[in-house]
Design a protein around this nucleic acid. Sequence first.
DNA 1: TCTGGGGTCCTAGGACCC
DNA 2: TCTGGGGTCCTAGGACCC
Length: 360
Amino acid sequence: MGPRASRWVLHVDLDQFLVAVEILRRPELAGKPVIVGGRGDPTERAVVSTASYEARAFGVGSGMPLRIAARKVPDAIILPVDREEYLAASAHVMDTLRGLGLVVEVLGWDEAFVGVDAEEPEPVAHRVQQAVLGATALHCSVGIGDNKIRAKIATGFGKPAGVYRLTAESWFEVMGERPTIDLWGVGAKVSKRLAAHGIRTVAELAAADLDVLVAEFGPRMGAWYGDLGHGRGSAVVDDTPWVARGHSRETTYQRNLTTPQEVEAALRDLVAQVLADVEAEDRPVFRVGLKVRYAPFFTQNRSKKLAAPTRSLDDLTSAVLTLAATMEPGREVRLLGVRAEMVMPDGGDPLERTPARGRI
DNA sequence: TCTGGGGTCCTAGGACCC
DNA sequence: TCTGGGGTCCTAGGACCC
């Protein structure tokens, strides 16, 4: 197996995944405004992970503070995030796809690329939907593309439970007049920076001078955004199991931390949690990171390469406390995060990035 | 309105070396 | 005394995704 170029790429995306899994357990929730987020308590600091289509009709979406969501939909049923349950459902879906004899590249809990070499991809897409529905009772949408970028963007036009094809031929007709932020990998910041150069639509991005993009975003990202305007991208689907670069834990405190003692205790706790994830991987840590969000909303990151890779709790704790010594004294802290990056399993240099793997 | 938690990759710039 | 150009390594931080 491993990476292979495909004639067609399918992007399989489960519809309202977290909510759909909850409905499997509690069928009476079907058709109701359901929101999954945090610990299910809208008075806490937390955000919406997934909202049902009924809740979305009230303007609720992923990433919205739970408190605001609850205000918009007073009748909402708000449920806590249950990672274990979603992981199990996700594994069932991915196994079903592999069971069809297809190459499957897992992108997240609820989505995957699938390589298809058939002349006509639509029958395969429908077969995928039927297989997933039959095995798991979950609905999915399928985007079809001549590469991964177009397949991924196509899915949005197929939701819910549909199939949509987007290729080089239809790219500009479908996407040309849309704002750049509709592209996968262009967010609020980049779309603003593009707009400052007069680039507002996908067609304008495609027509943009490469030198301008490179000067603004650097050689790699500049070229990447240029390609994105054309919908150009890789059609290689890679089913090599993903190896995590690292693990992290972060916590937003319901009450801000105010004393150095509170901060240190919280950090010791987070390091121990991260180490538990690291132990499961059987690989030592070569770099630790510290993320701090001060009140009201200002985030800083620190990182430090260790003198030698280690898995010792004492070593990792002292490294993190060293980083913490540079925190601003006397400021209230609302979030702390600890990250550990691990040596790759083959012993290869962990700083050697697989080119553009995460960005497809 | 008030902003989670888990990830990935890229860039700028300083330190240091030849 | 003031100074080049190139390279590597490292940290801080930015941006994006689900």
